[in-house]
Amino acid sequence: MKYMIMMFGGLGATLETRAPEWITSMQEFMMKLDGELKEAGEVVASQGLVDPSQAKTVRFQNGVPVPTDGPFAEVKESLAGYWIVDVSEDRAIEIASQVVAFIEYPMEVRRIMDEPPAPEL
């Protein structure tokens, strides 16, 4: 089963107020975890998004789509990055827990819907 593990926030919510030592150890922790997940063949994809301050939101206003600067949600609720892992739900929660224990910010674990079968060629 595939799960998406989502991380939220941006620079302001996670990095801005931290000590240099914390940033360095966080970087080492993330690299180690990424390596372990890849080594185990558990990770399908992982991506990070640029800071939410760089986002644009397109809204439907007065009958037309209107782009505005900034994310849709509060910065601390805005998607910052994700892993897609092919594991059991327990294991996905275990992975998320390891990260949450370190960064002390909440993460969301949600199952990815099954894809329709590939069309016959």
């Binding site: 941006g10 620079l11 990095l15 801005e16 240099p20 914390w22 970087q27 990070g48 760089q54």
Partner: peptide
């Protein structure tokens, strides 16, 4: 910090955040 918010590179973002910190 402004530069860190603008970059699309994870290592650069961490480097810039580290310098700021």
């Amino acid at each position: 910090l402004r530069a860190a918010r603008m970059t699309a590179s994870v290592p650069e973002q961490r480097y810039l955040a580290l310098r700021a910190a």
